[in-house]
């Protein structure tokens, strides 16, 4: 009897998710390999067709978040598709995207200063069904604006990545996930000189219907690899250092 109930509950949960804008993946190739992070999401898959919000305190974390997005885009764009990348303070250097196995000419870069124009451009781009994903760098985003963007993504199925650069105006909004990413010291093999693979501390601050968490990720061999943290004290130490 309890098994039957559990079945019913999972079924109901699935229906609820569908009502809340989560849609099951149509193409298997769009599955994004994030290792254990995927367990934090409803349905154990990286939610596409929704808005992801990245909190960036400074240029370093902005670049780290951009790198994390580039990693996700690399699996999204594997089978073709196009992306619009709207930036205001940062200038993306396209050759760097090649190391994420992205063909930079698949991406249309838009460089704007005016926040209103950026918001309008992001919304227009999110409405365009021909795109795979939209990356937008934006200062502030209030509840109404984020709702508009969420409606646009739900309509078109385009995934939105919003880089929030002004931390002071952090408020509740309609984005499905809120991330915070900052760089970590890389490690080379056997302590050899030089710099190892890029490594980040990825924090999932908020996820609708999921479990937030904190992970250390490394981009190597064309995919995300989780770095196992030895002790909890090291994280604490690191946090103090930051």
């Amino acid at each position: 009897m309890p098994a039957l109930k559990a079945d019913i509950i999972t079924q109901l949960k699935k229906e609820l998710l569908a009502l809340q804008g989560f849609r099951p993946l149509l193409h298997a190739q769009h599955k994004i390999e994030l290792g254990t992070i995927n367990h934090s999401f409803p349905g154990s898959q990286f939610p596409l067709g929704v808005n992801h919000e990245f909190i960036c305190n400074n240029n370093e974390s902005l670049t780290a978040s951009s790198g994390f997005i580039a990693g996700i885009l690399s699996s999204l764009l594997k089978k073709g598709g196009a992306t619009v990348w709207i930036s205001s303070s940062q200038i993306i250097f396209p050759p760097a995207l090649v190391s994420f196995s992205i063909e930079p000419s698949q991406i249309i870069f838009i460089h704007l200063r005016n926040q209103k124009e950026i918001l309008w451009t992001i919304e227009e781009a999110l409405k365009c069904e021909g795109l795979t994903a939209v990356v937008g760098e934006i200062n502030t985003l209030d509840l109404t604006q984020s709702r508009r963007l969420q409606l646009a993504t739900e309509q078109s199925g385009v995934t939105g990545f919003l880089l929030r650069t002004n931390q002071r105006t952090l408020n509740t909004n309609a984005c499905t996930c809120r991330w915070q990413i900052y760089p970590l010291q890389s490690e080379t093999e056997d302590g050899l000189p030089g710099i190892g693979f890029p490594r980040w501390n990825v924090e999932l601050l908020k996820v609708r219907n999921g479990k937030p968490g904190n992970w250390h990720l490394e981009w190597s061999n064309g995919r995300f690899n989780e770095v196992v943290v030895q002790t909890s004290s090291t994280i604490e130490e690191h946090k103090e250092a930051v």
């Binding site: 619009v84 870069f109 365009c128």
Partner: peptide, 26 residues
């Protein structure tokens, strides 16, 4: 990819409002 008609239409709309100078492809 970029050959989608809808993307060309999106860029037309954008360039009408924000100007073609803001749009780059590398």
């Amino acid at each position: 990819g970029l050959h989608d008609e809808r993307i060309a239409e999106l860029l037309d709309r954008l360039s009408c409002k924000i100007g073609i100078d803001a749009i780059h492809r590398y």
